[in-house]
């Protein structure tokens, strides 16, 4: 229902109504997938080293951390929350990895330890959001700085290298007979699990309800706070694991590992059609978004584009992916009310 014209912009924003919202996302998925194919073909014809099995394996491996973290991030954004501290948790865990290795710990002790650290980091985010009722955007901007700071406390500016070859192989070698690196194979597995959780379980239904109308979800007996806490913990856990992958993949533990990675993660989630306001999105879209970001990064790298330009491209994609659905909605709306009448939310 439309309130008075002057105030329309803010407050009870009448959500643009979509008689069949699914069609919209099918369409968005299709667009991203089409874009993916275009970028791939463009790369294959325009850049000589691109369409080789070696390069594609490398591109996928290079995408491991972004892809892995994008999964819990999707769940968070669907529930209308966000975690900006993921890259800092990755960095903190990478720094711990190096420091503990320096201190003589065995890898099979280090990895469980940093996973626990990731869980604790996620728990802190989650508790701040659910117990104190703070917006996750603000909380995780804070912990993003905090965790990165801790990473420097742990390792300073030095780098630790020379990890055992068998572990490094796990992070870089491909599954025998395929061009798929082990970390990416794990991503495929987890993506299937996440897709089932999001689209076919009660938890998934709850996430969409929380994201779209939190109060109604609470009235329906959904444990809103517990679920959100769980999401932040999973996000911390996966980011910590990505920290281990990152460290082993580059063979170097540093406090500034993965700096700025959270933006690439969020860009791929939004590019995949997940609404930043929550309540809408598909995991299929997110996978397409992740692959698109990966291909673009790889192409830019092959063409020796400076890293600054790469981050500009990521930023532009982020903006485009937020804006496009809005613009599309406006266009649809204009088509439905050709003579410019204000649309109304409902009876």
């Amino acid at each position: 229902m439309a309130p008075e014209a002057p105030a329309k912009a803010s407050a009870v924003r009448p959500r643009v109504e979509a008689p069949r919202p699914l069609t919209r996302f099918v369409r968005w998925d299709v667009i991203v997938t089409a874009l993916l194919i275009v970028v791939f073909l463009g790369g294959a014809f325009g850049t000589s080293d691109f369409a080789t099995s070696d390069n594609l394996s490398f591109a996928l491996d290079d995408l491991s951390e972004i892809a892995l973290i994008a999964l819990p991030m999707t769940l968070l954004v669907v529930a209308a929350e966000v975690d900006l501290s993921v890259a800092s948790i990755l960095g903190l865990c990478s720094a711990l990895f190096g420091a503990l290795w320096d201190a003589g710990w065995a890898i099979q002790m280090i990895i469980p330890f940093i996973l626990v650290v990731g869980v604790v980091a996620g728990l802190i985010n989650g508790l701040l959001v659910t117990r104190l009722g703070l917006p996750s955007l603000a909380v995780t901007i804070g912990t993003m700085t905090l965790y990165r700071g801790l990473a420097y406390v742990v390792l300073g500016t030095k780098a630790v290298a020379e990890f055992p070859q068998n572990y490094a192989d796990l992070a870089t070698k491909t599954v025998p007979g395929t061009p798929i690196p082990y970390p990416f194979a794990l991503f495929i597995l987890l993506a299937i699990v996440t897709a089932i959780v999001l689209h076919a379980t009660g938890l998934g239904r709850s996430l969409f309800a929380i994201g779209a109308q939190e109060e109604a979800a609470f009235f329906a007996g959904i444990r809103v706070k517990r679920i959100k806490l769980l999401l932040f913990v999973v996000s911390g856990l996966v980011s910590a694991f990505a920290g281990a992958v990152y460290t082993l993949r580059y063979g170097s533990a540093r406090a500034d590992n993965g700096l700025g990675l959270e933006l690439a993660v969020i860009a791929s989630v939004l590019l995949g059609g997940v609404d930043f306001d929550g309540g809408k999105g598909t995991l299929g879209g997110v996978i397409a978004g992740v692959l698109l970001i990966g291909l673009l990064r790889n192409l830019l790298m092959l063409r020796d584009v400076a890293t600054e330009i790469q981050s500009i491209v990521t930023g532009l994609l982020l903006i485009v992916s937020v804006l496009t659905p809005r613009i599309a909605a406006l266009v649809r709306q204009a088509r439905r009310h050709p003579r410019g009448a204000t649309p109304s939310a409902s009876s």
Binding site: R15, Q213, G279
Partner: peptide, 9 residues
């Protein structure tokens, strides 16, 4: 609208 239903569901 707020408590009973998820309006976009």
């Amino acid at each position: 609208r707020q408590q009973g239903l998820v309006m976009e569901g």
